[in-house]
Design a protein around this nucleic acid. Structure first.
Length: 845
RNA sequence: GCGAAAGUGGCGGAACUGGCAGACGCGCCGGACUUAGGAUCCGGUGGCCGAAAGGUCAUGGGGGUUCGAUUCCCCCCUUUCGCACCA
């Protein structure tokens, strides 16, 4: 029978659905395994990049199932978001229609791949059954003051017409569309992720199974720095400027103070200045400078003197107060002390504007620099000079002592500063979760009562972003009644950032149908945390830090008992075509359906897992896919040819039989392959080398069948073998090899192996079958070949019984005629037997 | 600029704690079977010298440690990624 993947794939997909093969329930008797791939944005069409991600997860899920785990492997849709809205505007449909159609199409594509998803657990975040719990959680967070509203300067994407979180600004541009981000002053809802900053940072050390790269990115993003806040009195009083510094040890060298153009004191200083309008003009110019440039240092450092001075609380000196465009209003206190001798930026600034430079730190064991002759700031720690009572202290000691003095004098204190800021979640767009809040003139901000949830997203006809939320244009939505006083109230018309949806969906999968709670704690208690999570590295800080935050919020609500949501993270590489990311606009998208039609889903699955390690980027090639197809056809022919003999349960195991050399060699190869494949899949996920090992076994089986004197032959037309196999040993050995092969191949090529498994006489289905057992006694060779090197070159090979002692090996090596030919007339300096007999190295002079 | 990772045949990639570099696949070459082969099976395939046996050079470049280095150390080059005025 020829290998025709299409029909049998259909057959088995139908069979899996009908018999609910991959649905699961909690079973305390079995070890659980929660295997998850990042759910999909329903953009319209799955491409082979998606396929690759889902295959990595599916191979792991199927393998774990066969190894006796109760495996939860669900899938769903990250279905809210701007593209739906934009597409709807363009094509004059509704975002919901667009989204649900896309989901239906993509679901079909994924099902044709034969992924072992528990489809009955499918969720879509745009449905009220789901987003209702976003609202529920929002209210809980509001109650715990983890959600709050304030006016602030926010990132604004002029193209998307909405606010962006800091995490969504990449190099000063919108993460979604690449438009340079501007700022706006808006009343916004925030999640207090900073309340967990320290915990999120510390527990990074508790994530040993995450890529180091992702952990580093998260550490940098949280950006903890320890330092001090110190107040410089403004002369004349009573105002003061509070600065944040990590280098209080250099404070005796602070010869000026710099304010961000956004600093709250700026307006008052302008007011009191000689020429307020010129002052304001300068400030305005700084504020309107390219934001990205200001943030990255591409915009030149500039500043101007406010004409005022402040008092350095340690030196007592009057120091000028300047406003500088490079000082960040959002970080620290929005004001810094200028220490030109020991900070490069301050140095540059002081040189430009001729501000005094005072050296207060010298290198340990070196001389203090001469301010006049300096060409650059010296920012290393050292020993203090010109610092009054602190002279001679190391920077470290001085930081402690100076902070202590500041605290005693009431002019400052040690603080910890984070770069991480609270997560702004308000979005002025339609296609998202309505924020369940009401504004009442008498009662203020009032949450929608739980029993009134969900606040359903009303159907509207127009959603053009115009800077305010489309929901604000619907009076029936906006006008509501205050649940507290019964008076008129206004509804919040912003929607939530879609990253809220994706920050807890993995919990919902544990109990997706629950209509009285986000999930039943006992169910997450059983399944959580996610044991294996795979997805793109682009979420290294966005989704992955928000999810870690939400997990802790649920924990503090008493609903989960874990700190971290994902035990192991694998960031898979992208699939490129012609060196580029696949995208519709580039016209280089490879549609999995086309590939399935040509070669079958199994070949596609095998290709994306074989071509490179999962973490690496790959370049799509049709030739590679064809190669994978060829391998599957080769396996098919092999099994098909020997099927009649190996089928049925009547043949005993080869263990205990008296085997000939070839049979023993094949058995050894079989068990060696089981060991290699098993290790490559678990705990490592080296899918490519696991497949290589199976290919070797297949090659070996072909050789075995073709060996001289064999009556087994794999026929090109895949007819049954010729002749009659009389040796039951031969049959038993081949059967063992073929069964192990088919089992281990099944996570990669489930359809074909199901078919073969059935034809081999099994009725239970291969996904219920047990992973083949590795027998180390079989894999161990009874004879080993030991290479003998003389001065680094292999000159002979000894064939000896396994376990020959090192002494004996040495003697045998030196007695070997070929070795002697190379040793003759020279002096043997050294003989080394490596790793108990893996190799012998002889050194002669 | 700072930091991290990586650099292996024509290509994708192997090599687990230093131990026969190039597994496995693609491509290419040859053979068998064929009316035919873009099917299949078998064989070959890093460079150079050689008819062959064999020799010799080879894991970005240069040093070092070692009996032995793709693997460990130092310097340099290149690429990719991350951070990028965070005081």
């Amino acid at each position: 029978m020829e290998y025709k993947p299409q029909q049998l794939e259909k057959k088995w997909q139908e069979n899996w659905r009908a018999s609910r093969t991959f649905e699961v329930v909690e079973d305390p008797a079995k070890p659980k395994f929660y295997c998850l791939e990042m759910f999909a944005y329903p953009s319209g069409h799955a491409h082979v990049g998606h396929v690759r991600n889902y295959m990595i997860g599916d191979v792991v899920a199927r393998m774990k199932r066969m190894r006796g785990f109760n495996v939860l492997h669900p899938f769903g849709w990250d279905a809210f978001g701007l593209p739906a809205e934009n597409a709807a505007i363009k094509s004059n449909t509704h975002p919901e229609t667009w989204t649900l159609e896309n989901i239906a199409h993509m679901k079909g594509q994924l099902q044709r791949l034969g992924i072992s998803y528990a489809w009955e657990r499918e969720i879509a975040t745009c449905l009220p059954e789901y987003y209702r719990w976003n609202q529920w959680l929002f209210i809980r967070m509001f109650e715990k003051r983890l959600a709050y509203r304030r006016k602030s300067t926010v990132n604004w994407c002029p193209s998307c017409q909405t606010v962006l979180a800091n995490e969504q600004v990449v190099d000063g541009a919108c993460w979604r569309c690449g438009t340079p981000v501007t700022t706006r002053e808006l009343e916004q809802w925030f999640f207090r992720i900073t309340a967990y900053a320290d915990e999120l940072l510390k527990s990074i050390d508790g994530l040993p199974e995450w890529p180091e790269k992702v952990l580093t990115m998260q550490r940098n993003w949280i950006g903890k720095s320890e330092g001090a806040r110190v107040r410089f009195a403004l002369a004349p009083g009573p105002d003061f400027i509070e600065v944040f510094t990590t280098r209080i040890d250099t404070i005796y060298g602070a010869t000026f103070v710099l304010l961000a153009p956004e600093h709250e004191l700026v307006e008052r200083l302008a007011e009191a200045s000689a020429d307020p309008s010129a002052f304001r003009k300068q400030v305005q110019r700084f504020r309107s400078q390219d934001r990205a440039g200001r943030l990255t240092g591409e915009v030149e450092k500039e500043g101007f003197d406010t004409g005022r001075t402040a008092i350095n609380p340690f030196t007592g000196q009057n120091v000028p107060v300047w406003i500088a465009n490079f000082v960040l209003g959002e970080y620290g206190t929005g004001a810094v002390m200028g220490v030109p001798a020991h900070d490069e930026r301050d140095y540059e600034f002081a040189r430009k504007y001729n501000l005094p430079i005072q050296v207060v730190v010298r290198p340990e064991g070196g001389e203090a620099a001469d301010p006049a002759g300096m060409t650059a700031a010296v920012s290393n720690d050292g020993v203090l000079v010109n610092s009054g009572p602190y002279d001679g202290m190391t920077s470290d000691a001085a930081r402690a002592a100076l902070t202590d003095e500041a605290r005693r004098r009431g002019i400052g204190e040690g603080t910890v500063q984070y770069r991480l800021k609270d997560w702004g979640i308000s979005r002025q767009r339609y296609w998202g979760t309505p924020i369940p809040m009401l504004y009442c003139d008498t009662c203020g901000i009032v949450p929608v009562p739980d029993e009134d949830l969900p606040v359903v997203l009303p159907k509207v006809a127009s959603f053009g972003g115009r800077g305010d939320s489309p929901l604000a244009q619907i009076p029936e939505f906006v006008n509501a009644t205050c649940p507290k006083c019964g008076g008129p109230a206004r509804r919040e018309t912003d929607t939530m950032d879609t990253f809220v949806d994706s920050s807890w969906y993995f919990f919902r999968f544990c109990d997706p149908g629950n209509d009285s709670a986000a999930f039943e704690p006992s169910k997450v208690g059983y399944w959580g945390p996610v044991d294996f999570y795979s997805g793109g590295v682009e979420h290294a800080i966005l989704h992955l830090i928000y999810s870690r935050f939400f997990c802790r919020v649920f924990r503090d609500l008493g609903m989960v008992h874990i700190d971290e949501p994902f035990t192991r993270l694998l960031t898979q590489g992208m699939v490129l075509k012609d060196g580029n990311v696949m995208s519709k606009s580039k016209g280089n998208v490879v549609d999995p359906d086309d590939m399935i039609e040509k070669y079958g889903a199994d070949a596609l699955r095998l290709y994306v897992t074989f071509v490179a390690p999962p973490e690496k980027e790959i370049e799509w090639t049709d030739a590679g896919l064809e190669g994978s197809f060829r391998f599957l056809a080769r396996v098919w022919r092999l099994v098909d040819s020997v099927l009649e003999t190996v089928a049925g349960g009547g043949i005993p195991s080869p263990a205990g039989m008296t085997l000939d050399d070839a049979e023993r060699a094949l058995r050894r190869k079989t068990h060696d392959t089981i060991r290699r494949v098993t290790q490559d899949l678990d705990p490592r996920v080296h899918l490519n080398t696991a497949i290589s090992a199976m290919m070797e076994l297949v090659n070996e089986l072909y050789q075995f069948c073709d060996r001289p004197g064999s009556v087994l032959t794999v026929r090109p037309d895949s007819s049954v073998m010729t002749g009659v196999v009389e040796r039951k040993e031969t049959v038993a050995v081949v059967k063992e090899a073929v069964e192990a092969l088919v089992l281990m191949l099944s996570p990669f090529a489930p359809h074909m192996t199901e078919e073969l498994w059935e034809r081999m006489g099994h009725t239970d289905g291969i996904s219920a079958a047990a992973w083949p057992a590795y027998d180390p006694d079989v894999a161990r060779a009874e004879q080993v070949v030991v290479p003998v090197q003389v001065n680094g070159k292999v000159r002979a090979r000894l064939t000896v019984p396994a376990g020959t002692s090192e002494d004996t090996l040495q003697q045998l090596a030196l007695a070997d005629p070929q070795v002697q030919a190379h040793v003759a007339g020279k002096q043997v300096r050294k003989v080394v037997v490596v790793n108990g007999g893996k190799l012998i190295s002889i050194v002669v002079s």
